[in-house]
Design a protein around this nucleic acid. Structure first.
Length: 309
DNA sequence: CTCCAGGCGCCTT
DNA sequence: AAGGCGCATGGA
């Protein structure tokens, strides 16, 4: 029989926990010294990496740790993913910079909300909004912190029952009506998030993009970070600049063409490759001044507008 | 002060 | 189809 414990250790070779938790795919992790603290579903957990091992400590005892192994995707064969990356200079530099960066497998609702809130926000701001949302509208859960409590991510029904004013009080600005309508849609069962993972990528993406505040980019983040569709390829401003600079001689390229290029060039784990490039160009090149490659504007036409069906 | 941030929706041509 | 702009909020 399994025994309940508060601590366990996993063998995790080729796992770069810091790069993974700092790479902008999840927004509830905080570094304290050598440790990372966060909440997965209803469990508070502290993680630490050392010598190819991950140590986890929870606030409440656990009989089994599959929930954590699943979240961290510890069973994934990292080498087989690396072997699919194209052997070009940009990809090699990105892998050298953050080798062991992994994709998490997040809870779909939390992931969807987080990325609805992400538009035109810096990561530090997204984290702040999500923190407020959880503190004010999530359930209190035991945590190994001063005060002893943290909060779970608020369920669809909890957010659907709020007013737009209450959401705006969490600093999310014009995203509040998007989130409210999406929460009401999910709470009423008009969209079954659990079912999306059983659908083909294109159908799941179309379903997500019917939600207000969810365009191609946000949909692909959810498809990649929550459902694990390996070819979902979110193109944000960072990835746009990186692809244009590294693969198109700094020339502007339409979003549609970039998406076709991403599938052809990066292959069956294109989403993984995207995360390496994103983390590399966003944090790994201090010389970059965050400017578009050539001549002023970096915006590209939105070629993926929703069809009314 | 201005500019812009892991975009989206809606409006013009 | 393709491009432009406003939308809150806060930090540089």
């Amino acid at each position: 029989m399994a025994v309940s414990t508060n601590v366990t250790t996993f063998a995790a070779p080729d796992y770069n926990l810091t790069a993974t938790l700092e790479s902008g795919q999840a927004f509830r992790w905080s570094r304290l010294g050598e440790s990372w603290e966060g909440v997965i579903d209803e469990r508070w957990v502290r993680l630490k990496e050392s010598d190819g091992q991950l140590t986890a400590e929870t606030a409440l005892p656990c009989r089994e740790w599959g929930w954590l192994s699943q979240y961290l995707q510890l069973e994934v064969d990292f080498g087989s993913i690396l072997s699919t990356f194209p052997p070009d200079r940009p990809m090699s530099e990105a892998v050298d910079y953050c080798r062991g960066l992994r994709l998490l497998r997040q809870e779909p609702w939390e992931c969807l909300v987080s990325f609805i809130l992400s538009s035109t926000k810096q990561i530090v701001q997204i984290r702040q909004i999500v923190r407020l949302l959880c503190e004010r509208h999530g359930n209190p859960i035991p945590a190994l912190v001063p005060g002893g409590l943290d909060h779970s991510f608020p369920k669809p029904t909890a957010l659907a029952s709020l007013s737009e004013t209450e959401l705006r009080a969490c600093k999310m600005g014009f995203r509040a009506p998007y989130l409210l309508e999406t929460a009401q849609c999910v709470a009423k069962g008009e969209l079954d998030l659990a079912d999306l993972g059983r659908q083909p990528l294109d159908e799941a993406r179309t379903a997500l993009m019917r939600l207000p505040g969810v365009g191609r980019k946000v949909a692909d983040c959810v498809l990649l970070f929550a459902y694990g569709f390996p070819t979902a390829f979110p193109v944000d401003v960072w990835v746009l600049r990186a692809l244009q600079r590294l693969y198109f001689r700094g020339r502007r390229v339409s979003l549609k063409r970039l998406q076709r290029f991403s599938q052809e060039h990066f292959g069956p784990c294109a989403g993984y490759a995207q995360q390496y490039l994103f983390h590399y160009v966003r944090t790994g090149q201090p010389s970059r001044t965050d400017r578009p490659p050539i001549g002023g504007k970096s915006k590209v036409a939105n070629l993926d507008r929703k069809s009314k069906e």
